[in-house]
Amino acid sequence: MTLEKTPKLRRGFRFQWEPVQQSHVLLYPEGMVKLNGSAGAILAEVDGVRPVHEIIRTLEQQFPDAGPLAADVEAFLAEAVQHQWIELS
């Protein structure tokens, strides 16, 4: 995955916090995925504007104790593309 690319939620997908489930979820036609903490934190930064490398930097600032995050973020985004949740442009 190139760090210059910009991820964006695909049309019809909505990302939101669900207080009752105490987690972020991804909603789409007749479906819902409950996201774990790190997936939620990454998708929260996916705004269709900032490229992958900026998202990584933001997350590393947010979680200074987590060490370098590039590999994890890229792996998750690749998975999200595969699930057809997001697209890269």
Binding site: E18, V20, E30, G31, M32
Partner: peptide, 8 residues
């Protein structure tokens, strides 16, 4: 309020 997120 109970947690429903999908509505048909």
């Amino acid at each position: 309020a109970m947690g429903a997120a999908q509505l048909g």
